[in-house]
Design a protein around this nucleic acid. Structure first.
Lengths: 131, 131
DNA sequence: TCCGACCTTGACACGTGCGTCAAGGTCAAG
DNA sequence: CTTGACCTTGACGCACGTGTCAAGGTCGGA
């Protein structure tokens, strides 16, 4: 029933203990405490930390992550479908739409950068042929 | 030949003058100065500010934006294709790939949120039919 | 001429996602 | 029993993107 301590969790997730404590303080993960007062994390928490780090590096805030984390599969506890409040659903729909808008902006600009690089390559190849 | 001052630029771009000065301090936009020492912005700067704000709200940093901004079309000065340094090209390729990775992460998680919401809706409709 | 609206730079403050160090508790190995 | 590796909380600091306020210069209109 005992899981892992914060050092092992952080190491396996490729994070620092500071980051793990920060995620816990923000309510993104939870821990049990033994008689030690040491934090005890379940195995599923490892996947959550990895997912949190992925989303953070994708530019999302911990608040947004906290909103959407409960409905992301990953290796974790079964997803809850019962007793979901209408406001929770509304919040999720807003976040979904905000994610879609963000994806659209990033895709459009990524494509512009890619097109620029393609044009650069085309010109350098043409210069090589004619020069 | 005179363009607009910072107040007009900010208002038309839906930004604060503080933000505009910050973008200029970061080298994302430039201005000429009159005898006033007042900033004088070209019309094209408006489009750039709008693009900067779009990219910032999509989660990119000003450093990344500074890297990719020169090759985004938008209403602005003609794109430069000549004399591009190899290190600039390499940097752009890295940023393009990082954007692609970010898009992939966001899309995967957006889809998971959408699937969860779809499942919620399916269950509520089923409950309505059977109840 | 004076007021009000605009501009200037500079500085302080905040929230976020951390790094880092301090001061102390726990625990197994020697 | 001591050492050292781990844990605890707390605090200070930093970079970023902004808000906000201060103290002053510039200007056009009453």
């Amino acid at each position: 029933m005992i899981g892992m301590r914060i050092g092992e969790l952080a190491a396996r997730a490729g994070a620092s203990t500071r980051q793990v404590r920060f995620y816990e303080a923000k309510g993104l993960i939870t821990s049990r405490r033994g008689a030690n007062n040491y934090r005890d994390y379940s195995e599923a928490t490892l996947g959550r930390v990895q997912q949190i780090r992925e989303l953070l590096s994708a530019g999302l805030s911990t608040q947004v992550i906290a909103a959407i984390l409960p409905c992301l599969e990953s290796p974790r506890d079964p997803i809850v479908f019962e007793g979901v409040l209408p406001e929770t659903t509304a919040r999720l729909e807003r976040e979904r739409d905000r994610l879609t808008a963000r994806i659209e902006v990033l895709t459009r600009n990524r494509d512009a950068v890619a097109a620029y690089l393609d044009e650069l390559r085309r010109r350098s190849e043409q210069a090589e042929r004619s020069g």
